[in-house]
């Protein structure tokens, strides 16, 4: 019964707590307190991402749940919600707030640093060709359903997947993740960067375009067939 109202999941060094949207607030906070108390040793010291779904949480309610977590040695770090009221409340308490649904497909410049352990696999999906002069920066992964033309740039903290021709500049793992990859149906980037490594496309005209994947191996960017 409790499990359906409150879901607690360990993600890396943090916890993701999802609260039922409809249950009485006082009821659900009491339940949450007792759940944490049962396993306090296990939870202690964790950073918490709180997902309240569509529930509007007022500022005083937000303060009380933050205090509730604080008293149990947990830090409320991120609040996820579709409700503007909730997001405003989180804002007022200087918490990081995010819409819980996938954000708008339009990329947003200057996102906060991405923590995949807190936010799962966030990313942007762009359903058109990126033309010269267009820059996309994402704190997560970037998927493009179209071409990336010369003069366009993508910077992603995570991976970059181009379902089309990559002819512009791409930087995956922009915060230093050497496990990041770049995939494209036709890989002829002006310049390709992964974490701190950089390469360019060979000058000679390639044969037939084929899907390829780029990643770091032994301190170099290598490109192989994407299968």
């Amino acid at each position: 019964m409790q499990d359906q109202l409150i879901n607690i999941k360990g993600v890396g060094d943090g916890l993701r707590i999802t609260l039922d949207e409809a249950e009485e607030w006082s009821n659900i906070t009491a339940l949450l307190a007792s759940r944490i108390d049962q396993q306090s040793a296990f939870f202690s010291g964790a950073r918490v991402t709180l997902d309240v779904g569509a529930r509007p949480v007022r500022k005083d309610e937000m303060m009380s749940i933050k205090a509730l977590l604080d008293r149990r040695g947990l830090t409320l770090a991120v609040v996820l919600s579709d409700s503007q009221t909730t997001l405003d409340s989180a804002d007022a308490l200087d918490l990081r707030a995010n819409v819980s649904a996938v954000p708008a497909p339009e990329p947003v410049d200057g996102l906060a640093p991405f923590n995949p352990e807190e936010e799962g696999t966030a990313g942007v999906m762009i359903r058109r060709t990126l033309r010269s002069g267009r820059t996309v920066r994402s704190a997560g992964h970037v998927v493009v359903f179209g071409d990336v033309n010369p003069g366009a740039e993508i910077q992603a903290v995570g991976d970059v997947i181009i379902w089309g021709r990559l002819r512009g500049m791409v930087h995956a793992g922009a915060h230093g993740d050497t496990n990041a990859v770049v995939c494209a149906l036709d890989m002829t980037p002006t310049q390709l960067r992964i974490a701190g490594y950089l390469t360019t496309s060979p000058q000679d005209k390639r044969q037939k375009p084929r899907p390829e994947i780029a990643f770091i191996r032994d301190g170099h960017i290598v490109v192989e067939a994407w299968e």
Binding site: R128, L130, R131, S132, G133, R134, N149, P150, G151
Partner: peptide, 12 residues
């Protein structure tokens, strides 16, 4: 062509 591409992006 590069500049034309930029222009088309702005027009879109």
């Amino acid at each position: 062509v590069r500049d034309a591409d930029r222009i088309i992006g702005l027009l879109e």
